[in-house]
């Protein structure tokens, strides 16, 4: 297994390099774009002197590479900020201070992250179970009525926006049937049971749509695997259909599912804005939209970086799962 250890190491180094590249690109894209940051931060009524003062405070006159260097330094070892009168220490990993509130971006994100992760992790479990299950079922029942119905439902699922499903669910389940309370975020550490009950609807509405995509992918990939020669071998040796599908076909069909899941998980951490807004969940997505609206650059950069971090980590994990499932990957 020395090959496997080497593979993990190579993949880990690759992830770090990717993260570094992402941080450079994000930093340059946001800070090198035209527009007077000091003016925006200070507000429209500021005098030129005030604007100048703000610019100095934010060190906007330093060259871009130097500012990036300090930014990187903040992430790795922490740094000090002067807020006019006092000096604030921002310990590693420091993503800077909000222009708007002088709050530390890291703290801001840490406050929102549990909400987003709760939403996405729970929904992911649901969409995998529903999606892969439906996909397997419709591949197995190909050409029969049940398959056509399933295909119809998943097609409708991919085409329906989350606010439609979510709204309908909320009106029916909470408004009419009173089965669940209107969702309100409760921290897992405060009350795990309430946490789950309140998140059930958001999970469902996010998962239903994703599940449709996964069902279609699983079905296609399953059908492809079922047509392969080694499936014919096991059928010709009297291995039952349940084993052929559950053991041999599923394993071969899972690779693209793992890959898609990595991407969807990573992007849902910051991209579930609609779901968060609809259910009033104070997550990363909502905060990001707010920060963009008021051009709070440190917050935007910090959050985009964190989202990028999750996408990279999810993909690295997917690659490792790949390698565990199919040893040929390690050789490549």
């Amino acid at each position: 297994m020395s090959g496997f250890g080497g593979f993990v190491l190579r993949r880990g180094v690759g992830a770090v390099i990717t993260l570094f590249a992402i941080s450079v690109i994000i930093y340059v894209v946001f800070y090198a774009t035209p527009g007077n940051v000091a003016q925006i931060t200070c507000g429209p009524r500021c005098s030129p002197e005030q604007v100048h003062q703000v610019a100095q405070q934010l060190r906007l006159d330093d060259p871009l590479y130097l500012r990036y260097w300090h930014f990187l330094e903040g992430i790795l070892v922490g740094r000090d900020y002067s807020t006019g009168t006092a000096v604030q220490h921002c310990s590693a990993p420091c993503l800077g201070l909000s222009y708007q509130s002088d709050q530390q971006v890291t703290e801001l994100i840490l406050a929102k992250l549990p909400v987003s992760l709760s939403l996405v992790l729970g929904a992911m479990v649901l969409w995998l179970v529903l999606g892969v299950g439906t996909g397997m079922l419709s591949a197995w029942r190909r050409g029969r009525l049940s398959e056509r119905v399933l295909t119809g439902i998943t097609l409708a699922g991919t085409a329906t926006p989350v606010f439609v499903i979510g709204l309908v669910l909320m009106i029916v389940v909470c408004g009419e049937l009173h089965l669940l309370p209107f969702p309100q975020y409760v921290a897992f550490t405060d009350d795990p049971e309430q946490w789950a009950w309140n998140l059930l609807l958001p999970w469902l509405s996010l998962a239903l749509i994703e599940a449709a995509t996964f069902a279609r992918l699983t079905r296609a990939s399953m059908l492809e695997t079922l047509a392969e020669d080694h499936i014919r071998t096991f059928r010709a040796y009297g291995v039952g259909e349940r084993s052929v599908i559950g053991r041999h076909a599923l394993r071969g069909a899972l690779a693209p599912v793992i890959a898609l899941n990595a991407n969807n998980f990573g992007s849902a951490v910051g991209g579930a804005v609609l779901t968060e807004t609809l259910f009033g969940l104070p997550g990363i997505g909502q905060e990001l939209v707010h920060a963009v609206a008021v051009v709070d650059l440190p917050v935007v950069v910090g959050m985009v970086l964190v989202i990028g971090f999750f996408v990279v980590i999810a993909n690295a994990v997917a690659d490792l799962l790949y390698a565990v499932a199919d040893r040929r990957v390690v050789l490549a």
Binding site: D229, H230, T233, R235, A236, Y237, G238, G252, D326
Partner: peptide, 23 residues
């Protein structure tokens, strides 16, 4: 049929790489 396949009559296929499960 399942009891026939593999037990009383077994088949060897042309392409041995694709005829075995790679996983």
């Amino acid at each position: 049929l399942r009891r026939l396949r593999g037990a009383k009559a077994a088949m060897v296929f042309q392409d041995p790489l694709s005829s075995l499960d790679p996983y």
